Simulated assay, not measured.
Amino acid sequence: MRGWSLLLAGLVLLVIACDGAAGATPERSPQDKSSMAALGDSITNAFASCLAPSPCPRNSWSTGDGTKVSSHYRRLLADNPGLRGGNHNLAAANARADALAGQASAAVRTGARYVTVLIGADDACRGGLADMTPVETFRRQVDAALAVLHDGLPGARVLVVSVPDINRLWEIGHTNRLAVKAWSFGLCPALLADPGSTAAAAVQRRRAFAERVDAYNTQLAAACRAYGPRCRDDGGAAHRVRFTLDMVTAQDFFHPNAAGQQALADATWPGQPTW
């Protein structure tokens, strides 16, 4: 009788355990949850847009979840509540195209279904003209990152965004005393060094800088076409944004503030990513 009692008790415990398992909600992996990821540099992590000289991803044009910017994430969330909390900003300050593959690998781990890519400003701004990332190298590094996404997230939609018109910052700020002071600490010297100079060498340096950014944008669009139908480029929309001084941060007169981030979000929004 004691043996039968133990067997019966074991069966009861087994039934309870099975009922409990059936009624529980299993923890979902990142791949089961709708998510998006942003790759890039300090523009996308919204550096200094919260006053402090540090990243402020809640104001990002791409993944921001704050109230000041109607980001791509917030627009997608309005139609897809399952996306809540699935916004992954993997962009890093000073990131160049050679960092993009690592960010893409991180995006694969999130299981992102929508990925934005904005890269190139730091490749142009890394030093003097001779220090800028060669166009061929830039393309190779972008292709490597997109290959990681293509292999690791074959169902994801990818948006490749053009590098904003950085020369526009010189145009609107080179006569502003505060902007010139901020740039004097070495910010983007290939463009912003000696901003008041009208010497032929300075004019040519700024022209060469603009041409390099244009070349990067040409390669970004071409890399996206090579990726296949699940990649879309912005058609130069970000590059066409006409920044004003009230759209950049007062700390460096370079990075977009919340208003600048909003302008980027508006210009680059592709609609629901169903391509």
Rank of each mutant, 00 (worst) to 15 (best):
I172N: 07
S184W: 10
D194C: 03
H150Q: 14
N217R: 00
R84E: 15
G111H: 10
A208S: 06
R225E: 08
A38N: 10
A78P: 12
V115Y: 02
H239L: 05
G271Y: 10
D131W: 00
L178K: 14
G10N: 04
L245C: 05
A221R: 00
S49T: 03
L264K: 03
D131G: 00
S49I: 01
T25Q: 13
I16R: 13
R242I: 11
F243G: 04
D194P: 04
C188R: 01
R207C: 02
I43N: 11
G196P: 02
L8H: 06
S71G: 09
F47S: 10
T198L: 04
W275M: 01
R157W: 08
V213W: 01
I43R: 11
A259D: 10
P164T: 05
S29V: 14
D246M: 06
I119Y: 01
M247I: 09
R207S: 14
D246G: 07
R240D: 12
I16G: 14
P57Y: 09
H174I: 08
F253M: 08
E211N: 10
A121G: 11
L11T: 06
A179W: 03
T249V: 11
L77K: 08
P30C: 05
R109H: 14
A238P: 04
P134V: 03
T110E: 03
R126D: 10
D19Y: 14
T218R: 13
L192K: 00
A130S: 09
V69G: 02
G66R: 03
V161I: 13
G235A: 08
A182P: 13
T244H: 09
V142D: 00
G23K: 14
A156Y: 02
A208R: 08
G186H: 00
P134R: 07
D98E: 15
A112N: 07
I172C: 07
A200E: 07
N167W: 12
A199Q: 06
L7D: 10
L169W: 10
Q141T: 00
L11A: 13
V15L: 15
F253W: 13
L77S: 12
F185H: 15
D214N: 11
L83I: 07
V241A: 04
L191Q: 04
V161W: 02
V142L: 01
R225P: 01
R168A: 11
N45A: 05
A95Q: 06
L118M: 13
V142H: 00
A199P: 01
N45Q: 07
D65E: 15
A263T: 07
P154Y: 09
